[in-house]
Design a protein around this nucleic acid. Structure first.
Length: 401
DNA sequence: TCTGGGGTCCTAGGACCC
DNA sequence: TCTGGGGTCCTAGGACCC
């Protein structure tokens, strides 16, 4: 049966949501009508553009570029700090609206969903009509605009939603790709990034059509499995399903760009401890346990390196994860100036799904009670409440430089 | 005050086993 | 003893996405 898939993408999501929320709270100024961005804190060295208004875009400001560069392009730019709990709220509201149309929804990111309407379209009903209704309802009921891509192939739907913006609906059915997609530069194709772009360019592949028309074996020879994937995308044959089933995370990580470079284990450890506790807490909230811990460093030359290790047994304990993280830092750190430190846990399994071994069972102990108490207090009083003495010291130190 | 933070998936090489 | 080769697990690194 021919599929009917929508890809729905919020236009300038973080900025639009912030704008809508401010209007709702009595603000007269609509951020969408001025040069504005959502950006990090420059004094904390997190100064990059996360989202932008269309006016900011007209100044040539790009997502991901440093704010100081954005300011050069537009000195009057307004920079609004990010607010992720707000975004989550708006994302959830959007999802709820979609649920009125189908239960086959994949939340692809905080501001993007795939909807599989194949089984939900009644005979004689037009998918375009449904898309129009969704788009207009979002605008009227939630106050922001979306782009919708419609196709019989998941990736084509995603490509279609990226055509002209904002507040637009585009179709890109397989039989339309030649004149709607093949003329686009290859950089526009989903999953083609900077590195692949260079390589494709050297092979004389400039447009999506160039890739589509190349011999399959030629592409596989140069790009392997990845090559087959993008070649299939270019031909409108992704064959990917809308993955609507609730999926659990495969890994959980937290990392931080430090306010200033650090060059000793002593300075780095308290930060790592805090990150480890954050990650362990998130792990417990997911009701999952991890089998691998990974610590990553980025130095002032932007070189990234990491070590990981398999734990003797799976765990969600702050103490055990922190211990592993500290050991990894010891073996990893080579004396350079560190800009970013991060930890992540991998190899996750659901606590409820697995049979705990006798050894795991024994871990039901003092540490667990501490974790439970700390988690409870965190939920009751907020994240900042629970701190270790070592962390408080760290923050005192931060004032000096 | 130049370059965030959260993810997923893939590859390649070494260890180890049969 | 002129020495294969498949499979799995583990680690490090990298590409790409939003």
């Amino acid at each position: 049966m021919e599929k009917r898939i929508l890809h729905i993408d919020v236009n300038n999501a973080f900025l639009s949501w912030t704008a809508v929320d401010r209007l709702k709270h009595g603000d007269k100024l609509d951020l969408r009508t001025i040069p504005a961005i959502i950006g990090g804190d420059e004094s904390q060295r997190k100064g990059i553009v996360v989202a932008k208004s269309n006016i900011a875009k007209q100044f040539g400001i790009k997502t991901g570029e440093p704010i100081y560069q954005a300011r050069k392009k537009c000195p009057s730019i307004i920079n609004v700090p990010a607010n992720h709990s707000l975004y989550k709220k708006y994302s959830d509201n959007l999802y709820k609206l979609f649920c009125e149309y189908t239960d086959k929804i994949e939340r692809f990111s905080i501001d993007e969903c795939f909807l599989d309407l194949t089984e939900f379209i009644k005979p004689g009903e037009d998918v375009l009509k449904i898309a129009i209704e969704i788009k207009e309802r979002v605008k009227k009921e939630l106050g922001f605009t979306v782009n919708i891509g419609i196709s019989d192939d998941k990736i084509l739907a995603k490509m279609a939603s990226d055509f002209e913006k904002p507040d637009k609906i585009h179709t890109l059915f397989k039989n339309e790709i030649e004149y709607k997609m093949w003329n686009l530069p290859i950089s526009e194709l989903f999953m083609v990034g900077k590195k692949s772009l260079n390589k494709l360019d050297k092979l004389g592949i400039k447009t999506i059509g160039d890739l589509a028309k190349k011999d399959e074996r030629f592409i596989i020879k140069h790009f392997g499995k990845y090559g087959f994937m993008i070649w299939s995308y270019a031909n409108g044959n992704s064959n990917e399903e809308v993955n609507y089933k609730e999926s659990r995370p495969k890994g959980i990580g937290n990392s931080v760009t430090l306010p200033y470079d650090m060059a000793s284990i002593e300075q780095l450890t308290p930060v790592l401890v805090r990150l480890s506790e954050q990650v362990s807490y998130r792990l417990r909230k997911e009701n999952m346990i991890a089998s691998v811990v990974n610590v990553q460093l980025k130095n002032n030359k932007f070189e990234v390196y990491s070590h990981q290790k398999k734990l003797p047994h799976r765990t969600d304990s702050s103490k055990e994860i922190t211990k592993a993280a500290k050991e990894l830092l010891e073996e990893l750190y080579k004396g350079d100036k560190i800009r970013l430190i991060g930890i992540r846990v991998d190899g996750l399994s659901g606590k409820d799904e697995i049979q705990l071994s006798l050894f795991d069972e024994k871990e039901e102990s003092k540490d667990k009670k501490i974790d439970k108490t700390v988690d409870y207090l965190k939920e009751k009083f907020g994240y900042g409440m629970i701190k270790k003495a070592s962390e408080i010291k760290r923050e005192d130190k931060q004032i000096k430089p």
